[in-house]
């Protein structure tokens, strides 16, 4: 059920008033890889190279129509610097999905992906859907991390993988649509499981937190 790179997005990033599903999505990754820029592109369709470094936690909301269903996404933008972990880790636990971002022009940010995976696993467990996302494809000349390496790492850890550019807008809504599809599949799986069991352990989806 892992949606690979290049999956054709049939979803559209339109707004919808009455969402059928609500997911909490957490953005993690090193400082300056472009988490806030990605969210600005997704939610406001703007790009500024001067966005201030996130201190603590920020928050955006986005609704998407995917496969004729309406999804509301709560997008949690966490500070990238390591020492904010103690502040942000409480939000890891409540995430339905995680976008783990690195900067394709920075080897450091890519080698830290493993560290971030361990944080996610520690706090959220194995069940959480993770999208590995290489940002800044617009800076092709400065690329230090080949696409194939990202793909390989994603395969190894069974993550969904894409590359994008918050600066150009490349693959921004595609990335979210792919993640939403995966989250929907996971949700359906959980529901089915729950129906099989006589007394279902109610997992409240998308409750306030």
């Amino acid at each position: 059920t892992v949606v690979g790179a290049g999956a054709a997005p049939r979803g559209s990033p339109e707004a919808c008033l009455d969402p059928d599903h609500l997911y909490n999505v957490l953005f993690v990754g090193d400082s300056d890889v472009g988490k806030t820029s990605f969210l600005h592109r997704l939610c406001l369709n703007t790009f500024s190279p001067h966005l201030a470094a996130t201190v603590g936690m920020d928050y955006q909301v986005k609704t998407l129509v995917v496969d004729n269903k309406c999804f509301a996404l709560r997008l949690w933008d966490s500070a990238g610097q390591e020492r904010y972990r103690s502040v942000t880790k409480q939000f890891f636990r409540k995430a339905d999905g995680v976008v783990l971002m690195y900067d394709i022009t920075s080897e450091y940010s890519f080698s830290d992906v493993r560290y971030w995976l361990s944080c996610i696993q520690e706090a959220a467990g194995d069940g959480v859907a993770v999208l590995l996302l290489g940002n800044k494809t617009d800076r092709a000349a400065e690329r230090r991390v080949p696409t194939s390496e990202g793909e390989l790492l994603a395969k190894e850890h069974q993550l969904m993988f894409l590359e994008c550019s918050a600066a150009s807008g490349h693959n921004i809504s595609e990335a979210m649509v792919s993640l939403v599809r995966l989250l929907k599949v996971r949700e359906d799986e959980l529901k089915n499981k729950a129906e099989e069991v006589p007394k279902p352990p109610q997992k409240k989806k998308g409750c306030c937190w």
């Binding site: 201030a52 201190v55 603590g56 936690m57 928050y59 502040v87 409480q90």
Partner: peptide, 20 residues
Amino acid sequence: KQKIDPILYMTEWFMCAFSR
């Protein structure tokens, strides 16, 4: 009631002494 942890709004206020 809204379960909004102080961390969500005060971290930047306090750490940057409201400069941002």
